[in-house]
Every structure is written in C-alpha cells, then in structure tokens.
Design a binder for these strands. Structure first.
Lengths: 319, 319
DNA sequence: GTTGAAAAGAGGTACGTTCCTCAGATACGC
DNA sequence: GCGTATCTGAGGAACGTACCTCTTTTCAAC
C-alpha cells in the first residue's frame, strides 16, 4: 500500500501519507527486503593484471560481505584488459543479458566504453563509475576522488617538502588517461602558482612497461642534476623506486606517489617516499555497494557519506 | 537451536554445526533481530559546552540514523561537564539504572571516572571509550586515534614544513589530559630525533580560558623572535589564531592544529594553518555504534574496519 | 521393569513487510 | 434497475529467524 501499486485512489494515498506523518512511521527496509526476497545482483568490472589496487578492492569487497554489510547481495567480479577498449565493450555487452541489477565499473574512458556504458544504462541497470570517472556517459554516479584536487594536494606537499628550488619529474603510465591528465593539471597549477622555484618537467610515460619506466627514470636522474622531486601519478611505483635507489639520489629527492600498496608502504617506512596520496579502498567498496543499492530501490543517495576523501599518508600515520 | 540454549546435547550441537558448515548457511542477522524484536539502547556521553567536536559527532550520529545505519537502535546523548569528575561520576552512576545495553564515553581519564566505568561494566553494559582512551579500566574497546602517533604525524609535518631552524610553540588546553601528554610526547620525539634545527618550547596551557590563551600566545610571539611554528594540540584554536593574526607573524609561522571545525577550516583555506590532524567523525560515530552492537550480541569485532585513521588535511584536500 | 524427572527436539506463532487473492464498491451501458 | 467490467481495499500467506510450548526420548534410581 505504501508502494506505488497501480490503482490506488488519490484520496486514499493522501490519507495514508497523512497517517504516516502523524504516527512517525518509518519503514523497516530490512523487513521489506525479507518479505520481498530482495536480492541485489551486482557486477564489479575491474582491470585485470596484477594491479594492487584491484587486489585491495577485491579484499575490501570480501570484507564487506564478511561484516554483513553486503547481505542480500550477490556479487561477481569481472576482469577486463584495461587497454583493449574492444574487449571491454564485448564484456560489457555480455552483461546485458545476465540477470543483473547494477554494475560498478573501473575502466579508462574511451568513446567505445562511453557507448557501452550508455547501453548498459538503457538496459535498465544501475551503473557507477569506480575510482576513475566516466563523464559524458549516462553513469548514475561516480565514486572516487577528484583527480585535479588529488594533483593539487600532491603539488602542495611537494612545494612545501622541497627545501630548495629545482626540477620535478612527473611519471605516469600513460598521459592518455584522463586521471593522469587531471592529476598533472592540478599538480602543475599549484607548483607554478605558489612555488616559483620549482619547475615541473614534461611527463614521462611507461606504457605498462616497467623496464621502460626504469630506464627513463635512470636517465633523468643521471642527467638532471637539479632534480629535487618525483611525482608518480599512477602505477609503476616499483620500477620508479628501483631506478631511484640505483641512482643513489633517492634520499635527497622528495618522492610523492599514489595509492597504498605493499611496495609504497615499504618505501614510506624506509623514508624513500615522503608522502602518499591515497583513497580508502574499503570506503570505495562500501560506497559502491551502498550507492548501487540505493539506485536500485531508487532511494536518495547521501552525498556526504559517499564522498571519498583524498588521504595523505606519511610514515607516521600509516594505517 | 543455533543459539546457546541451555540443555542441548554435545552431540547434537556438533551435528548441527557440521550441517551448518556443509550447507554454507549464514544466519540472517536482521531476520533474527526482527524475530527477537531486538532493540539496542545506547547512551553517548559527550563533553558539554560549545565543543565543535561534540557537535560534529552529534551530527554524524544523526546521519547514521537517517541512513538506516542505526536501525533498531535507540540513542540518548548525555552531556557532561568535562572538568568535574564528581559530576561525571554521578551521571555515569545514573546510567546504571536505566534500561540500557551500552555506553560510548568521551571523558578525560581520572581515577573517579575509571572507577565509574568499571562499575558500568560490572552492571553488564557494553562500554566503549570514544576519541579519548580510558586504559586501565574495564572498557571493552577504544575507538579513536593513537595520540602518540597523531603527535608524531604533526611532528613530521612540522619538521618538513619548517624551512629554517627555530622554536616551536606547543599549546593545549591542559597538559593534565592524557591525550595532550601523548601528543606532545610523539611530537617531540620526531622533532628531536629528526629535525635537529628545531626546538620545542615548553607547553603552554589555557585551562579552558580563551583570553588566557590569547594572552600567552601574544606574549610568546612578541618575545620569541626565533619562533617558526605553532602546534595546537587541543581546543582553543580560535583564540590561538586570533593572537597569531594580531602578531602579524602568522604568515611566517607553520601552524598545525587538530580537528576540522569551521574555524580551522577557514584558517586552512586562508593559508593560516598549514595542516590539520583530524579524525573522521562520521567514522567514529559509525564505529562506535557497530562495536557496541557487536559487543551486545557478543559477536567478534572487525578490527581493521574500526581502526580510525589519522587524517592529514591540507588546503587542497579539504573534504 | 517401572517410575519420574530432566533433557531433547518438534511444532507453532510472531516480528514488519510485500504481494497475491478475493470480495466489496463503483461506474457504465442498456 | 440490473448486469457487467473495472476499481479499490481488506485479508492472509510468506520471508528467515527466535522463542515458547508441548511431546518424546533418555537415563538414573528403585
């Protein structure tokens, strides 16, 4: 009666509404779901490969289930080859014919992916972009941090940590990714605006090739004597750190990287990395589940709760 | 049958357990609570007065209720005069005769409070210490950050942000509080261990008197020409900031404070405060509720989820 | 073997909700 | 006014669990 059953008189509705307000009734969502035998069927689409981030996210989802947070949800995790838009599209297509309520998607933004997402939406699924936004698609929600703000935070830290003027190396996997572009944008804006003594060098890219990254960093450290800092915007931290250690200059450089992984944690503990910009993966996972559920029941989303914080991690506040 | 009903044969128990394992049965906590008409009755004991922290915490609790996080929970918030141990004890005594399942307590540690907490425990309540730990009591759990680590984090930030050697002022409400002691301890350990050029001055205390604090800070800034930084460990940020602004030196000092409040937020935005050490109040509230519930049902506590992070907030990553 | 008490388990009801069924109400055409 | 078709709303079963009651089983003492 409380639900929009077709064929209830207007008058009755208002009468019920009024009584509801008067008695202070609040619906017991859980009893409702129990009665309805509600199941939330979600798929999480994550990049394949040995991505520490995806591993951590999967662990966080596991955690959500073990703590009854994800009761009444059935979850499937699908891995996609992050750099093959065609394959991604194919996999997303396949989802349309599954009995499914929602999809959380972490994929680089390409025109093909955009189209595939829009088609998912049209087939009635709830879709959230995870960690990396997909603007200009019909995705319902984005859960992750603002890349520009993350870059600005890194820039501010770099500027304050660097004790002398000099050059900053910015390294990433690929500048074709929107996240990298935005991080650099934010980083550079702060450095050039507030720290005149620092100069940000052109970004170097590894294109998923650790050896290549190691080689580039080796060369830069060898030739750029005025180098004072390194900002690693994406994956490939291990290779960068290896090259920096070899160069013998790691203790004199301010290194700032993204995401807490076993490698970055160790480097932080060893004072090799000065600071880490991270997002709480557990929060990301829970947010995605909560938002997807709310979308399915078309209930409102509590924006404040879903805002993912840009965390700064130093040696002393490692979680 | 699944619950420890007295008078079930050993053999039957193991048989059931086995079947449970085999079928992969997981209890639907919510259906159980529905059947049992479970109500969790908690009291949150918070310091009275215009504490921004308490206000934020209250808002966070409100939020938990509105997002169905706190379903089946009835909550009462009680304010205590933080500096009157006798009154605190009296209020805690009063709780024992209420129909109650658990208490979350934020109170300075004194012998009287310790005793009162132990008595609460003995009357069968679940008790968690909130924000400020109460060791050497029978409290079940502490939800908050490690003060020594928080102090160390502030120390590391101060050391790296200060561009020249000099003196650091440490201000607090009262060094009689364990939190202040520990924060200073951690702060000093890092500074004296790693930043030889910096010298931490003896702590100054306001004893809940903003005017006094303002006066002290005014004097220190006027006389200590080598002052390079201020670490505000507790409340009283507004008074400290006021004095620093008057001194005309605020732009040359590295100011680090605790907790995100309207005042500290503004100062951060204005570049008056360099960094803030904070804890996520929303997380604190949800953790407290979750832990209390688990304690009541004596279910295990998921430590990793309840660990409160030491957040570092700069101008660029303000939430 | 009988008795009786205690232990074990089976069965039914209730929790707050949804959804289905069915009966009563209403409207409409003749 | 009557029959029929459509609306409306009331009533009950079910969801997964707990808890109470009642019957059956077990076991010790005689």
């Amino acid at each position: 009666m409380l639900n929009a059953r077709p064929g209830v008189r207007e008058e009755t509705i208002t009468k019920v509404q009024e009584a509801v307000g008067r008695l202070g009734y609040v619906r017991d969502t859980y009893a409702a779901n129990l009665a309805r035998q509600r199941q939330y069927r979600f798929v999480f689409v994550l990049p394949e490969g040995p991505s520490q981030f995806a591993i951590a996210l999967e662990a966080a989802l596991q955690e959500a289930f073990s703590s009854h947070f994800a009761d009444r949800t059935v979850l499937k995790i699908v891995r996609i080859p992050a750099h093959d838009p065609h394959a991604i599209v194919q996999i997303l297509q396949g989802l349309q014919h599954l009995p499914l309520d929602g999809v959380a998607l972490m994929a680089p933004e390409t025109p093909q992916v955009r189209d595939a997402v829009s088609r998912l939406k049209e087939s009635g699924l709830a879709v959230v972009a995870l960690a990396s936004d997909l603007p200009n698609t019909k995705r319902d929600y984005f859960i992750g941090i603002n890349s520009i703000a993350a870059g600005r935070t890194a820039g501010l830290l770099m500027g304050r940590f660097a004790r002398t003027g000099g050059e900053i190396l910015v390294a990433t996997n690929s500048m074709r990714s929107r996240d990298s572009l935005e991080r650099r944008l934010g980083f550079e804006a702060v450095i050039s605006g507030e720290f005149k003594g620092l100069k940000v060098l052109p970004s170097v890219e590894s294109f998923d090739n650790p050896t290549r990254m190691e080689e580039i960093v080796r060369e830069v450290t060898a030739t750029r004597r005025r180098l004072v800092g390194v900002y690693s915007m994406g994956s490939g931290n291990a290779a960068i750190l290896r090259a920096l250690r070899r160069s013998g200059r790691i203790d004199d450089l301010v290194v700032i990287a993204h995401e807490l992984t076993p490698a970055t944690r160790r480097a932080l503990e060893e004072n090799e990395i000065a600071a880490l910009i991270a997002q709480n993966v557990g929060h990301l996972a829970r947010s995605a589940l909560r938002v997807l559920r709310n979308l399915c029941d078309d209930r409102p989303i509590f924006e404040a709760q879903e805002r993912v914080r840009i965390e700064i991690i130093l040696r002393e506040n490692l979680p």
